[in-house]
Simulated assay, not measured.
Amino acid sequence: MDSPHGAAVKAEHFGLKGPRGWAFRGIGLDAAPGSLIAVEGPSGSGRTCLLLALTGRMKPTEGHAEIGRHRLPKKMAAVRRIAALGPVPGVNDLDQSLTVAEQLREGALLQRHYGAPIRSLLRSRSERRATAAARIAAALDAAGLDLATLPKGERTTVRDLERLESVRLSVAIALLGSPQLLALDDLDIKLSDTERTEVWALLRSIAARGTTVLAVCSEAPADAVLLRTGPQEDGAAPETKPSTGAAGTPKITWGTGAKEGAAAGRDADADAKAETKPAPKAEAEPEAKKDSAAKKKAAETGPAIATENDADDTGNADDTGNDDNDDDTKGADDALAEAGRA
């Protein structure tokens, strides 16, 4: 597998605001291609939103970022083509019912359909299978996953993998497309100290091959380009510009996290509720007066005309979600039929 030249990651006053307030804001970053970037912060401080925004999956609200030659938020689709997601819970979870081989073949098939150049579709079936097998072997090697060490080899189901093995498998699938940026979320969850050391060693090796790595974690290694979210330890307001530490230390950026945004969201909800309180009921008019007024109005305006409620014309959002599931199922079947044994 050819080592791609990683994407430089730059951001200035980068922020994203949601229904409950700011998920993050004031982010500044300048990381060279092939860097190991660690997003450090407490849970709920906007770390995952920042990861998804920098990979073109969420649209930022303020500021801008540049991933390689592509500027966000205008070039989100272009950024998605060069940025691959490793394990991101709730976004690209592995299919627990598939075997490891099936999961890899499905990833290779999807990459061939959506990421490979059009000329590759003109190759013979045997040549396509050989290319897919070579990509899978190279990705497994880069991710440090040896199928022979699994309980049932390539036939091991995903649900039977250990946490570290699952991370390696997700990384291997992400590397099938030779991305310029690899992003991982919640890297150190459910890992022992020894396993965390192994994962960071893996990410360093991927960065050394030329791929820029962006990893969300609760505690970053000392040699990573550090990007922090959430309030500072001393309780002071977060900085909105990068600060440079002593010689040899990485550049650190503080960003406003989701805790502040949640408070803003609660205030906004309270204001909205105050505005929507029902008005006090007016005193009831005497029945005789109401009947007289109603008869007078009917005589002047004629019979009332009923109107239809058009609120349901927008349809049900579920109607648009089934086609994608059908395509994914068909893709998995094709992967098993065409890709062959890894």
Rank of each mutant, 00 (worst) to 15 (best):
L121D: 12
I82C: 06
I118Q: 08
L110A: 00
P151Q: 04
A116C: 02
G107E: 09
A77N: 07
A101Y: 02
A134H: 03
R123F: 01
S120Q: 14
P151M: 05
S124R: 15
D95P: 00
T157C: 05
I82H: 10
E154C: 12
A132Q: 04
E106I: 01
S124W: 08
R129T: 09
A84L: 04
R80D: 07
L94V: 14
R105H: 10
R81P: 03
S126D: 13
L140D: 15
V158D: 15
G107I: 10
G107M: 01
R129E: 03
Y114L: 10
S120N: 15
L109F: 14
G86K: 04
T156V: 11
M76D: 10
L121V: 05
Q103T: 10
K152A: 08
V79R: 13
E102I: 01
T157P: 04
T156P: 01
L140C: 15
S124E: 05
R81M: 06
L161A: 15
K75H: 15
L161D: 12
P87Q: 15
K74W: 12
I136V: 09
H113A: 09
R135S: 14
A84H: 00
L72E: 11
E162A: 14
Y114T: 04
G90A: 06
M76S: 12
A138N: 04
I136E: 09
A84F: 11
S124G: 14
R128K: 12
L121F: 09
T99E: 06
A134C: 07
K74V: 05
G107R: 05
T131F: 12
L98A: 07
L161K: 02
V100I: 04
R123M: 04
A130Q: 11
V158I: 10
